[in-house]
């Protein structure tokens, strides 16, 4: 597990360093296309990058001054900095916040959404399926196997054709003007 972590951190450090080279954007988009990419790395970027790197370096320096060379440092119990220590010990309460927002909040929403996905959306699809199945089942009953029924369907079809050809179709054609 250590090796990949080291590799990743090396990549992160190496990748970050590219910010200081003007060629960063050409690494992303070299050649003709680069001109189409708007961000240009001016003073603001340099300031921001410098500040964050300075913060990191400052942190390392502070830790060195406190614990470097095997020194032992313990914050006095009465120190007003105890609250800062607690904050740091709890990692800015990020984990608690994550757990609360993530596990309680978003996860609950997720479960509701999952239910919606599985039962409502899929249910609608299945409902569609069932409607066709029902129609199929109903229609199947007209296939009675009795010849006189079939003859009756022919006559019914004939009458429907009368209505269609003599009344409905001329009306519609007059309205929509044919093909």
């Amino acid at each position: 597990m250590q090796v990949p972590l080291v590799l990743l951190s090396a990549l992160a450090v190496g990748g970050g360093l590219f910010v200081f080279f003007p060629g960063f954007q050409s690494l992303l988009l070299s050649g003709a296309g680069a001109s189409g990419i708007p961000p240009s790395y001016g003073t603001t970027d340099l300031l921001l990058s410098g500040a964050s790197v300075a913060l990191g370096v400052g942190g390392i320096a502070l830790a060195w001054s406190l614990w470097g060379n095997g020194r032992v440092f313990a914050l006095p119990l009465a120190s007003p900095l105890q609250s800062v220590r607690r904050l740091l010990l709890n990692r800015y309460y990020f984990k608690v916040a994550y757990d609360w927002i993530g596990l309680k909040g978003v996860y609950t929403i997720s479960r509701v959404a999952d239910f919606f996905d599985r039962y409502v959306i899929d249910g609608a699809v299945h409902g569609f399926e069932r409607a066709f199945a029902l129609a199929s089942d109903r229609l199947r009953r007209i296939q009675s196997g009795v010849v006189s029924d079939y003859a009756a369907y022919v006559v019914a079809g004939l009458i429907a054709l009368f209505v269609l050809l003599l009344i409905i179709a001329p009306f519609l054609v007059a309205r929509i003007g044919g093909g």
Partner: peptide, 13 residues
Amino acid sequence: GILPGLLVNVILS
């Protein structure tokens, strides 16, 4: 990941 430009160039072409 390090050299996305290889692909981006092709796409932009």
